[in-house]
Design a protein around this nucleic acid. Structure first.
Lengths: 352, 352
DNA sequence: CTGTTAGCGCGTTCAG
DNA sequence: CTGAACGCGCTAACAG
């Protein structure tokens, strides 16, 4: 009994027409399914004439391979997953766009997972979503905490690429930017302007990027023979509000501060908020990331540019290499940063 | 070379290479695949004891259903697609987060497609990605141009929800915000401040939202018996740069302008750039969207708040209704807007 | 209530 | 070079 009998619409509703399958095109071309499959995928040798006939009727019938069937049979879905905390972190959108474009260029589909809803979401992701294997590779932009459970999955054969934070022993392929170098440039710039009491508004120190940025700061200080003063470093949480309270308490207890190096732009903006008119004449402020908003503040924010879009692209190509090359090539790519001088430090154009 | 090799230890080690299938758990529990499937999905009546046994051994074996197989068999993938121009439009990230959270809450997976790379990408999406059916429903945030081809797909049974722009005859389910009302509130606010020469920096008029915002502006003018002057309306493209040039040319040819209503925040910020110190004393500026950056400018931008996150959530639930209800319920949801008074208009706190 | 039997659409053995 | 089978993992028809 064939419920396939296309003629009889058992349902009255205007449901979709039956999709054309390789079987349809085989019948139309007077060939076998197998031949059609081969011609379409170019896997085996097929007679040029036959191949042409297949391609012809395939396009006539408007054939499009069915993702689910292909995935079931081959075990690969041509999907890439991206796990991130929240798209509302401004620097993330550029990475995301880079990922999205690269994924699309490669003929893949992007699966987006946000853990904004908290740890519950993370656990579910690791326990349920991941093992259902809806993706061939996974890009990770997450706080350090989640990584261990992910590493297990990587060990089971899922290519994983970590973006932005290689604070963890670099066991996983990763893409980061030159955090140390960026902080070095920023601090040198401040020192070049004559600043000596340079406060640091730090991010959480379990982030590798934060540790690297701090070491860059210290290296610049060393170069200039300025002593490192731990009391000038205050921890915050990457938010504007965090930057505000950090700087407020900082200047309250030490009025000699003449510069602020914030480990991201949001905190730098918060700092400028608190400092008000003292920026840039009395106090210089420099940020990190170069998010779009850095041009919106008055004065415009001098900051360390991270090649976020390119980081996204690179992460994708690393994952694709691992997937298509089959090899889990261990690779840790670091992209350069550069200082973008705007108005929040005073002085004239300089550096680079 | 031999991926089978690991099979030797697959029994002893808890990290089996071969994924456990419904078949494994059937064998382990001494039941048939079908029974296991029923117990797991709760579709048919299963004896409580049996069900318990199945659940038990399933969790012992660490069973997780395989997405591809389920999708092939059922025809549904529990995936929702989101098509958008570029995540770099600031207002979009809030919508995106709302979508991402709601999709995840529903136990679905989010597929993200960006057409930032241009029309080429759009065509490929409609021609290749969509018909491969990797998703059960599609959320659309796009320029008006793409809609027609999408409507065809909707007619073939794919639930589609349009976000933000219902300029097209409302044939598709949609989520929008009260654009007319928002513009009305904004313009009233300006008029209440004594402004009479209110320029409009418009977006492209093929967007329904822009037409609605213009009509709101005009209604407020009518209420106040202020004549509508077409020469005060200038088209721009939703960007900061566009806002700058629009306002520059506007004030050049008409120095009497005492307010600017920009149809989005980016253009409003561009306007403030050009107007400089004249804001807010001589010229008031009001925007639309209430993006995060609206609080970053000095003066802070007074603007019309759109419930972007909620719009994303709502779009998802509309799509889910259509998918799970089976019915293509025609629904057009409009969420309220409100005026957020900050500093860019001068005067005192007022209004709504 | 449960087991048996068929496929979903595709790629990949095997024969010919 | 092509065709006929088989099966990926799962659910939906029928029996029993």
């Amino acid at each position: 009994m064939d419920k396939q009998a296309a003629g009889s619409q058992s349902r009255a509703s205007p449901r979709q027409l039956r999709r054309t399958t390789i079987d349809d095109i085989a019948r139309a071309a007077g060939l076998a399914k197998a031949t059609v499959s081969r011609a379409l995928n170019g896997r085996d040798e097929v007679h040029p004439t036959t191949r042409e006939r297949v391609l012809q009727t395939a396009s006539e019938l408007g054939y499009v391979p069915q993702a689910a069937a292909h995935a079931l049979r081959t075990g690969r879905s041509r999907c890439l997953g991206l796990l991130l905390p929240s798209v509302q972190w401004p620097w993330l959108v550029d990475v995301l766009q880079g990922v999205a474009d690269a994924v699309s260029d490669a003929g893949y589909t992007l699966l987006l997972f946000s853990t904004a809803k908290g740890e519950q979401t993370e656990r579910e992701f690791v326990a349920k979503v991941l093992p259902s294997r809806p993706m061939d590779g996974l890009l990770l932009i997450v706080p350090p905490g989640l990584i261990p459970s992910i590493r297990d999955l990587a060990a089971h054969g899922l290519p994983v690429v970590v973006v932005d934070d290689r604070g963890h022993p670099a066991e996983l392929p990763s893409v980061s930017s030159a955090n140390h170098q960026g902080a070095l440039l920023a601090t040198r710039h401040l020192l070049g302007l004559g600043r000596r009491r340079i406060a640091v508004v730090a991010g959480p120190m379990d982030y590798g990027c934060c540790r690297d940025r701090l070491s860059g700061y210290r290296e610049a200080l060393d170069e200039a023979s300025v002593a490192f003063d731990p009391s000038l470093v205050v921890d915050a949480n990457f938010t504007m509000a965090g930057g505000r309270t950090a700087v407020a308490s900082l200047v309250a207890r030490d009025p000699t501060i003449d510069a602020v190096f914030a480990m991201n732009d949001l905190m730098a903006i918060g700092a400028m908020d608190v400092l008000g008119d003292r920026v840039p004449t009395e106090v210089s402020v420099v940020g990190f990331d170069d998010i779009a908003a850095a041009e919106l503040t008055r004065p415009q924010l001098t900051t360390v540019h991270q090649p976020l879009y390119e980081m996204g692209q690179t992460a994708v190509s690393l994952a694709l290499d691992a997937i298509e090359g089959g090899t889990t090539v261990q690779q840790n790519v670091m992209l350069p940063t550069r200082l973008v001088v705007r108005d929040s430090c005073g002085g004239q154009q300089g550096d680079q």
